[in-house]
Design a protein around this nucleic acid. Sequence first.
DNA 1: TCCTGTGCTACAATAAACGTAGCGATACGC
DNA 2: GCGTATCGCTACGTTTATTGTAGCACAGGA
Lengths: 105, 105
Amino acid sequence: MKKRNVRGSTSGRPIMALLDLLGRRWSLRILWELRDQPLTSRALRTACDEASPTVLQARLSDLREANLVELVPASGYQLTTLGRELHEHFLPLHRFAERWSKQRA
Amino acid sequence: MKKRNVRGSTSGRPIMALLDLLGRRWSLRILWELRDQPLTSRALRTACDEASPTVLQARLSDLREANLVELVPASGYQLTTLGRELHEHFLPLHRFAERWSKQRA
DNA sequence: TCCTGTGCTACAATAAACGTAGCGATACGC
DNA sequence: GCGTATCGCTACGTTTATTGTAGCACAGGA
């Protein structure tokens, strides 16, 4: 059984697969919320404005399969080394978002 | 009439609004495809694996309203200064995606 | 035992995305 | 003028994704 294909990955261009994965709902948000501490599935749900557990679980499966997030029984969901590395690229987003929100009046 | 709310922006935290906007399908991809030249709506569609024009137009509306993309009659759709600035953060993603795809065998 | 919290799932309803087709407007050659 | 082509964009019916509510099995702790 072929492992679930990341949409848009047909081209074999990894960047497309990545953009697709991150473009699914709550993906970016999850990576963001796990940025500085592990969260249990329910804490994560609270952090994500009570998003439905169905999608969260689906996204967590995607992210775990992509080796960006892992589940550690003792503490909960957390970023893998790879996931943390990816998050580094998003760190400046916070400041950007502030400027962005001011400029779009 | 209040301008269309970006989902998840109820908290007033700009980062959430941004993550939500970028988390819609094709948002990231569009920003990516426009990275180094303007594209007409049809060229953009071709670049995005023939995605349906319905969503593309919807996303382009979102991105234009967010002041990340603009339509210049002579050349087509292109990143605004703000959009280009945002894209800077994604540039390293290309190399990351390469490593990522290798590590997930 | 009972209570609580964990990760996770079922299921019906809603919303988003898809695919195909086509619109009005504009710009060309003839 | 007349066809032809392209532009940005939209209608509409189908499929897929997401939502919201409820609840499962399991593992501690009291």
